[in-house]
Simulated scan of single mutants.
Amino acid sequence: MEKINPKVTAAAAAAAATTVLCWGVGLAGLDVPGEVQGAVTVLLVFGAGWITPAGRHAA
């Protein structure tokens, strides 16, 4: 069984972080539209994938 590429792991963690971030902002009383949540997710996933090294198994 192969290990998951570090870039994939970082992207998944960034997507989960967006969910928690928007949930916390909602608890603070601010409404975050779905479009903004999606945009934040894209930016965080892109950033996480960009800064994370590919690892040994990258093609």
Rank of each mutant, 00 (worst) to 15 (best):
M1G: 13
M1A: 13
E2L: 12
E2R: 04
K3G: 13
I4S: 13
I4A: 15
P6S: 13
P6Q: 05
P6N: 06
P6R: 01
K7A: 14
K7G: 08
K7P: 02
K7T: 13
K7C: 10
T9L: 15
A10Y: 02
A10P: 00
A10T: 01
A12N: 02
A12K: 02
A12Y: 08
A13S: 14
A14M: 09
A15G: 08
A15W: 04
A16P: 02
A17C: 08
A17H: 02
A17Q: 00
A17G: 12
A17Y: 06
T18R: 00
T18W: 01
T18E: 04
T19Q: 05
V20Q: 10
L21A: 13
L21Y: 11
C22V: 14
C22Y: 03
C22Q: 12
W23M: 14
W23H: 03
W23T: 14
V25I: 15
V25T: 15
L27P: 06
A28G: 06
G29I: 07
G29Y: 04
D31S: 10
D31T: 12
V32Y: 00
V32W: 00
P33L: 07
P33E: 06
P33F: 04
G34E: 02
V36G: 00
Q37C: 09
Q37K: 02
G38A: 09
A39Y: 14
A39R: 10
V40D: 01
V42M: 06
L43Q: 11
L43T: 14
L44P: 02
L44F: 08
V45T: 07
F46R: 03
F46Q: 04
G47Y: 12
G47F: 15
G47H: 06
A48C: 07
G49L: 11
W50L: 15
W50I: 02
I51W: 15
T52H: 04
T52V: 07
T52L: 06
P53Q: 09
P53I: 12
A54I: 05
A54V: 08
A54K: 07
G55C: 10
R56D: 12
A58H: 07
A58E: 15
A58D: 10
A58F: 04
